[in-house]
Amino acid sequence: MTRELWMGRGARILPPVVLVAALVAIWGWSAATGLLPRWLLPGPGAVLHEFDVSRAVLLKHAQVTATEALGGCAIGSVLGVAAAMVMTLVAPLRQTLYAYALASRALPLIVFTPVLVIVVGRGIVPVMVIVSVTTYFPVFLGMMRGLERSNPDRMELLYSLSASPTQILWKVQLPSALPYLFAALKVAASTAFVNALVTEWIAANAGLGYLVMVSGQYFRLPLMWAAIFSAALMTLALLGLILLAERLAGRWTQQATEV
């Protein structure tokens, strides 16, 4: 049993691990032989070395970006869930605003960054606002969809028991919406850092995005790649946390779709 489990897991994990190792080896080899010009892409050794040399710089900028991305993501998610719950209970509010929320998913809201910079100035605030807004809409819409798509039989059952709208929300709709919430959170988490980085280009003087831009301008390629990899690692860490939370809530999220 355990052995089979291990074999199954091995079959899943081994191929991508081998592939990554092979890619890194090819990358290292072509950089070492000069096949890959240094100005194009420095070797893995050089990037790793940069992590060591520029640790302080990377840490400083990573902290700024982490604050913006995590803070914005948290604010946007909490507001998104709260707004979805309120709109589920208050029909006139939903009828007035939902159309706008639906349209917003197609809008490149990030282009309003310069407007924001004019209003609040450069720094952490405009970046965090942009991350919050770009998190808010997917979380809100995912949650709304989850709340709306609660199994009609369950809704009918609660109705026949003359449950109040609030009781229906807490006892059926909210648990049923959790899988949708987690799907939305995963999307939000994977975009939070990218949006923070990109916004930093024009709205901040610190952060990994700023570091990527500046080290690119000065042709400090290893530092640039180290900053990019740092952002990728933080994104993966956030995604991992959300996956963990989803697994912990597994009793709801997995089975809510089954029976």
């Binding site: 899943r12 191929p15 991508p16 081998v18 592939l19 990554v20 100005w39 194009l40 892409l41 994977s190 850092f193 990218v194 980085l197 990109v198 990994l208 995005g209 990527v212 831009m213 080290s215 690119g216 301008q217 042709f219 390629l221 640039m224 790649w225 990019i228 952002a231 990728a232 994104t235 993966l236 995604l239």
Partner: peptide, 23 residues
Amino acid sequence: AVFPLTILMEAVPVVAILPVLML
């Protein structure tokens, strides 16, 4: 072999590589 990698790639802030691409 490749599918898990593609999911990893989605986590990479690809737009942030733009300065490299411009080089």
